[in-house]
């Protein structure tokens, strides 16, 4: 659909704002509806739109399968790492209190980092799913 003029121009206009909106949902998880999972899905939606309009090959160039796969693991590592950090600092697994001097701040930062991990993993998994499902029925060439 790359040749589709209107779709191409409008998508180019929209994609940055979709991504920014996803990050807004990510960062404001404590204040309103939102959080890591929703943010990840919206962020991936920007890539899905990009892939639909500009083609799967271009999407693979922008978000290589290896990098996206690594991001799935990175998000999980951030999540688990926060838990272990709490453990090392004298709490239990996934206890946020000890992460900062003030337990309230600790909770705040802990949740934010955990949500970031969730967001990265969800976005990366969604992009991976799109790439592998969209690849079905691909002409066997290139």
């Amino acid at each position: 659909m790359k040749e589709h003029l209107i779709l191409r121009v409008i998508s180019k206009e929209l994609i940055p704002f979709v991504m920014l909106f996803a990050l807004y949902v990510q960062m404001h998880g404590d204040y309103g509806p939102g959080g890591g999972f929703q943010a990840g899905v919206v962020f991936a939606a920007a890539f899905v739109l990009y892939g639909l309009v500009f083609g799967l090959k271009t999407l693979r160039k922008v978000a290589p399968v290896a990098v996206v796969g690594a991001l799935v693991a990175l998000g999980l590592l951030i999540y688990a790492g926060t838990g272990v950090a709490g453990l090392l600092l004298g709490g239990t697994y996934l206890e946020y209190g000890p992460l900062a001097h003030d337990p309230v701040h600790g909770h705040h930062y802990g949740i934010m980092v955990i949500e970031l991990g969730v967001g990265i993993t969800v976005a990366a998994v969604m992009i991976t799913i799109f790439q592998s499902f969209a690849g079905r029925g691909e002409p066997e060439q290139d």
Partner: peptide, 21 residues
């Protein structure tokens, strides 16, 4: 957009003749 692309090509992959200006 996804539904349109799907009914048009039957799949989401790149098509050899994407001549839909």
């Amino acid at each position: 957009i996804a539904a349109l692309k799907f009914i048009k090509f039957g799949h989401f992959a790149d098509h050899r003749s994407e001549s839909n200006r």
